[in-house]
């Protein structure tokens, strides 16, 4: 019998000997490899549920777009393709800096992690800033769904449906970015304090996957909301 068995008989709780275990390895894992695999699989599963979550919105979009293509096209014409295009570039750039932060973590360079995460947060901030400008334009043009919605052209209810979905989809996407940026800020502080090592940087890889996922959602949203039906304008 091991010493922990004797300890438990003596009445002390069985806490694994902290000195015998590497720092950062949770009590219920055998090795860093196991902890890492568990952490990645967990993140991938979380992203799977995110896909199903956004999937419901995409379903609603497909159903209503198929039913009312003209209204959706005219709604789509109201969106600012330049601002949307710039935002797409900004977001892809933030994915690059996120990937570089993960690369720095793999090399064990704490300062590199901090720098690249701060850049990622800044680019995320630029994206949200531009999004705010777009939202405020819609507000002034009375294109925000609800009692103040105004539309001069035909089929106002379904144009409003387009804006319902536009705000629901981009709003939920923006909310995911805010959450991601908050998590990144925490991780930047931890990285500054040197919490991550070559062996143990699961959190950075995990948040990286999350950030890329949020990015990919936008890669689908941009053509669906801004581009579809605009050819030949």
């Amino acid at each position: 019998m091991s010493t922990s068995a004797e300890a438990s008989r003596a009445g002390t709780p069985e806490i694994p000997d902290s000195k015998s275990r590497a720092w950062g390895l949770a009590h219920h894992f055998e090795s860093f490899a196991q902890q890492q695999e568990a952490s990645y699989l967990g993140m991938w599963l979380f992203l799977v549920q995110e896909i199903m979550f956004f999937g419901g919105l995409f379903l609603a979009y497909i159903v209503y777009r198929t039913g009312h293509p003209e209204a959706f096209t005219s709604g789509s014409h109201e969106l600012d393709i330049t601002l949307g295009g710039i935002n797409t570039v900004v977001l892809i750039a933030s994915s690059l800096t996120m990937a570089l932060a993960v690369w720095a973590a793999q090399k064990g360079r704490s300062k590199g992690i901090v720098v690249f995460i701060i850049l990622t947060i800044l680019l995320g901030g630029v994206f949200l800033g531009i999004k705010t400008v777009e939202y405020s334009h819609k507000w002034h043009e009375h294109h925000v769904p609800g009692p103040h919605f105004e539309w001069d052209g035909p089929d106002a209810p379904h144009v409003q449906m387009f804006f319902n979905l536009y705000f629901a989809m981009t709003g939920l996407h923006a909310l995911h970015m805010v959450v991601g940026m908050a998590l990144l800020a925490v991780i930047a502080v931890w990285a500054w304090r040197g919490a991550f090592t070559k062996e143990n940087h699961n959190l950075i890889e995990g948040i990286g996957l999350y950030w890329h996922f949020v990015d990919i959602v936008w890669i689908f949203l941009f053509p669906l909301l801004y581009l579809l039906g605009r050819n030949g304008v």
């Binding site: 199903m52 209810p157 319902n164 629901a168």
Partner: peptide, 25 residues
């Protein structure tokens, strides 16, 4: 649980939006 529950979540989210802001999904 992982594949199904989020669909319910988004459905309730839309239901809530419609009831709160009187927009018509």
């Amino acid at each position: 649980m992982v594949l199904g529950t989020p669909v319910l979540a988004i459905t309730i989210f839309l239901l809530g939006l419609e009831r709160l802001f009187h927009i018509g999904i």
